[in-house]
Simulated scan of single mutants.
Amino acid sequence: MKKFLQSLFKGESVAEASFSALAVDMHSHILPGLDDGADSLEKSLELVQAMKELGYRKLIMTPHIMSDFYKNTPDMIRERLAVLRAAVQEAGIDMELDCAAEHYLDEGFLEKLSRDEELLTFGDNYLLFETSFLNEPLNLREAIFKMRSKGYKPVLAHPERYSYFYGKFDDLAELWKQGVLFQPNLNSLSGYYSPAAKTVAEKLIDSGMVDFLGSDVHSLKHTDSLNRVLASKYLPKALSLAVRNSQL
């Protein structure tokens, strides 16, 4: 691997050789001023450029929507997308930009589902959602049923990071078998979040239970960490799976 990376440095960049196979990132917090990601247009532009250097050609950016903290709406998100698109074009950065959202599973989310309010999706009606990292929501399966009954295809963001599934991999696997798509974070492969998250991410890959791979980029700290993922022996394994990023 070391010789392989050294040879790439002489010509094609490591990032292009590794992440260009994904082509599309479908989970990030790059849109400016909407959540705990980029807090300015300048930082958004830096992140878009960093993602381009990592080999991506398209970014589907997904600001948090949480009833108590990030009360973003589809109109607000689309407005920031338009601003960033204009800035990226002016800066001469060749990157396709789109948006969706990362929906937090709370009562507000369930109410939106019940009222048939617009929820931002990507691709083939994929709906990205997350939960508490510590406590399994009592309404997890109810929410999944509602999403599917409304025609959405639920995508669980970073399933490897939910501590309530630690030691309960069979429960996690059962969700996947029931049709919940899984999107591990690439940075989990380097142990960025925790050793436990790394272990679960590797087990998901070994089990073939990966449908998307996401960057979950919030800042340059995350794009810098993605460079370390290149040394992970699990990255080629992950890229060999039938991940759907390039189809978006």
Rank of each mutant, 00 (worst) to 15 (best):
119 L>Q: 01
214 G>Q: 01
238 A>M: 08
242 A>L: 02
35 D>C: 04
52 K>H: 12
207 S>F: 01
213 L>K: 05
8 L>A: 07
184 P>M: 11
185 N>T: 15
156 L>P: 07
225 S>I: 10
106 D>L: 06
89 Q>N: 13
44 S>E: 00
204 L>N: 02
203 K>M: 14
129 F>K: 03
160 E>H: 11
199 T>D: 13
156 L>R: 06
143 A>T: 14
148 R>T: 07
185 N>C: 13
81 L>F: 03
183 Q>F: 08
178 Q>S: 09
87 A>T: 11
237 K>F: 03
139 N>Y: 15
200 V>C: 06
136 E>I: 04
154 P>M: 02
115 R>S: 13
193 Y>N: 06
245 N>K: 08
226 L>P: 02
197 A>E: 10
132 S>L: 06
225 S>T: 14
15 A>M: 09
239 L>E: 11
6 Q>R: 13
244 R>F: 01
14 V>W: 13
175 L>Q: 08
227 N>C: 12
104 Y>F: 15
171 D>E: 15
178 Q>A: 07
240 S>Y: 01
238 A>Q: 06
98 D>T: 10
30 I>P: 05
202 E>Y: 08
169 F>T: 07
157 A>E: 06
65 I>T: 13
40 S>E: 10
53 E>V: 04
70 Y>E: 10
219 S>G: 05
155 V>Q: 05
20 S>C: 12
77 I>D: 03
182 F>Q: 01
87 A>I: 12
232 S>V: 08
229 V>W: 01
64 H>E: 08
90 E>P: 03
81 L>T: 02
31 L>I: 04
83 V>C: 07
4 F>K: 12
186 L>S: 05
22 L>T: 08
193 Y>P: 00
237 K>C: 02
107 E>F: 06
101 A>Q: 08
234 Y>W: 12
135 N>E: 15
220 L>H: 06
204 L>R: 01
20 S>H: 12
185 N>A: 10
118 E>Q: 12
172 L>E: 02
193 Y>F: 14
247 Q>M: 10
132 S>R: 10
210 V>S: 07
57 R>C: 06
50 A>P: 03
77 I>R: 03
165 F>E: 01
81 L>I: 02
81 L>Y: 03
79 E>P: 00
90 E>G: 04
166 Y>Q: 03
151 G>P: 02
177 K>S: 11
196 A>M: 15
129 F>S: 05
148 R>P: 00
231 A>H: 12
44 S>M: 02
127 L>Y: 06
221 K>Y: 14
196 A>S: 15
23 A>M: 07
70 Y>K: 13
242 A>N: 15
87 A>R: 10
76 M>C: 08
89 Q>R: 14
240 S>V: 00
205 I>H: 04
70 Y>H: 15
64 H>P: 07
128 L>H: 00
43 K>I: 09
38 A>C: 08
